[in-house]
């Protein structure tokens, strides 16, 4: 019967990890603008770009030169 207690402890830990993931996703602003995210995923990026508020510094290098 003790095996049940171990399993329960394990399942709780997994569930808590899930809850933590949910907290992280809320904190990183993923629930702030559902429409924007739903559209953004369909854009074709030549290079993957992080959509987070903290700016990546390689902004200039990823600028394609075919515009000029």
């Amino acid at each position: 019967m003790n095996v049940i207690l171990i399993l329960v402890a394990f399942s709780l830990i997994v569930a808590i990890v899930g809850l933590g993931a949910f907290f992280w996703s809320v904190r990183s602003g993923q629930y702030d603008d559902p429409y924007g995210s739903s559209v953004r995923i369909l854009f074709e990026d030549e290079k993957p770009r992080s959509a987070e508020a903290s700016p990546p510094v390689q902004g200039i290098t990823e600028n394609p030169s075919n515009q000029k």
Binding site: Y35, G36, A51, P55, G59
Partner: peptide, 13 residues
């Protein structure tokens, strides 16, 4: 359009 802009993010709602 402009090399000076590093990053832009839209909050649609």
């Amino acid at each position: 359009l402009n090399e000076g802009i590093m990053h832009s993010t839209v909050h649609f709602t």
